[in-house]
Design a protein around this nucleic acid. Structure first.
Lengths: 301, 301
DNA sequence: TTGTAGGCGTTATCAC
DNA sequence: GTGATAACGCCTACAA
């Protein structure tokens, strides 16, 4: 009946088999799901998970990362692409941190020593879905997005490229940015106002499920039918997609596979193996009730 | 530019200012929300959060707790009442652990040295809502619940007491148990089968929002109107309640207040103060679209 | 094979 | 007040 003292052990070995989980907000269903997968995978490999939720501000993100490093975590997993900015200077703190411990980034790409990334090609998925909607004659596809994160930009690129590939001009009024703090209710109200003001569209692609559901509600409230008059596609295939009526069609970005990959990569790195620094997964439209079933086949996204 | 070595510091002081967060499943919206509040509160008091998700099996729960204790956490917060059983023997492991570090239990009550509990009086809330439905003439209130956790039992008591207080017999066929592993879709299907088999009810009270939404979907699919034909009430006031159509009326059990209380209690205990070992909060029906608005006033639950 | 000494880096104590 | 030193408990390496 003897348990070694973890602190003494840590001091001697300079590790307590702990990895830091950095996320903006674990109350977000998607991030919570990621934390769940990661914690499970890490634990089954003997690692504890130190959770650090930082919110959206870069200042706090840096502080959170520093805190984890000061605890000598064996590695850090960044959950959500909020941590990687399109502005490379903003990413310097990650590269600096990577000199102390391996950094694993979920859902974004950043090049650098000891930085390992796993993400879904959200851009291609968004483009494919948008393009299929355009092909169906839905030429006014509303795009709802949130902030200039890595994956946010990729998704938007996909949306715009779909229009370009289809030979149609991109219409600024159809691209609606939503503030991260605002809840679903605020989003719904805002969209209702826009519609009352004359905004018309025949499809919606949203970069998260909650925004898609907000749109769905606004559209139904305006007396339009879903999916006959307006088709709606969300992103993340989160549990929320099963709560709406109709159930939400949504792009599944392979979160479980991504998380498993992150865990095994980290495990490999920490046991001295050379691991690939980049892994790209492909998205997959999950068709439910807010799209016309025949239009999109699973696996085509 | 000097950062002290956390391990050496931990060894000397026998603490690394870390608290363990024990929860069955962070991918559950309610628990994720709790983790979010707790982590935030703990961090702002200088504590790191070590997350440990154990699943439902008692064996794994004990293992998880042991793991946290072996890491010499300063305290443990149990999230969700799954950790406290109605069978007192099953709770011995908590009492034993409490000799090593203070245990804080969210949403359940357990008496013991160094055990601190904060919970919402879910029983009273359930009784009040059920009773109001009965008064409205809804004499067949379907009750959906999940397992014999502490708060699960309290809620069920409340439901049954409502029938007793109203002078109506409790009908076993109206109490439907759902397995924890089953998702919303399974629940919905099961209820649809029951309805096809002749089960009739004019109201639903569910012990979590997801079950309520599953019921809502089954009811609507059967061609019944909500709330006119069937009223539905969920539990937890989670984000899911905003996704359904109509939006779900649900009992708010003050999660944020509970979490804040847990944090301040733990903080107090760890700084040597004497803290109350039990705090009871009162629930509050949040009326949305699945109940007839006039029937329930906020604050009456 | 068994046992013992040294080092990890901090904090706290004690002597000056 | 200041500066040296022991103690925290484990691991590892070396010696017997």
């Amino acid at each position: 009946g003897y348990t070694p003292n973890a602190f003494a052990r840590g001091l001697g070995l300079n590790t307590m088999n702990t990895v830091g989980l950095l996320c903006a907000d674990v109350s977000d269903v998607y991030m919570a799901q990621a934390v769940s997968f990661l914690e499970k995978g890490l634990r089954s490999n003997g690692f504890d998970s130190l959770l650090c939720c930082t919110g959206a501000l870069i200042k706090d993100r840096i502080k959170g990362l520093d805190l984890l490093l000061s605890r000598h975590v064996d590695g850090v997993v960044f959950i959500g692409s909020n941590f990687v900015s399109t502005d490379q200077e903003q990413n310097a703190y990650i590269l600096a941190a990577a000199r102390k411990a391996p950094m694993v980034i979920l859902n974004a790409f950043l090049e650098g020593a000891h930085v390992y990334c796993a993400y879904c090609d959200d851009g291609a998925a968004t483009q494919s879905v948008t393009q299929q909607l355009l092909k169906l004659g839905k030429h006014r596809v509303l795009y709802l997005f949130q902030a200039s994160t890595y994956s946010g930009m990729r998704k938007m690129d996909g949306y715009q490229q779909a229009y370009q590939a289809f030979g149609l001009p991109i219409q600024g009024e159809l691209m609606l940015e939503c503030k991260p703090g605002d809840g679903m209710t605020a989003m719904e109200k805002r969209l209702a106002d826009k519609m009352a003001g004359g905004l018309r569209f025949d499809a919606v692609v949203a970069s998260t499920d909650d925004m898609a559901i907000a749109a769905l509600k606004a559209v139904k409230a305006a007396g339009l039918r879903v999916p006959q008059d307006v088709q709606v596609v969300g992103f993340n295939n989160s549990m929320l997609a099963l709560c709406s009526d109709p159930e939400l069609s949504t792009i599944d970005n392979q979160l479980e596979a991504l998380c498993k990959h992150c865990v095994s990569t980290l495990k490999g790195v920490l046991s001295g193996e050379r691991m690939p620094q980049r892994a790209v997964f492909v998205g997959d439209l999950c068709c439910r009730g807010t799209t016309i079933p025949i239009m999109m086949k699973r696996g085509e996204v």
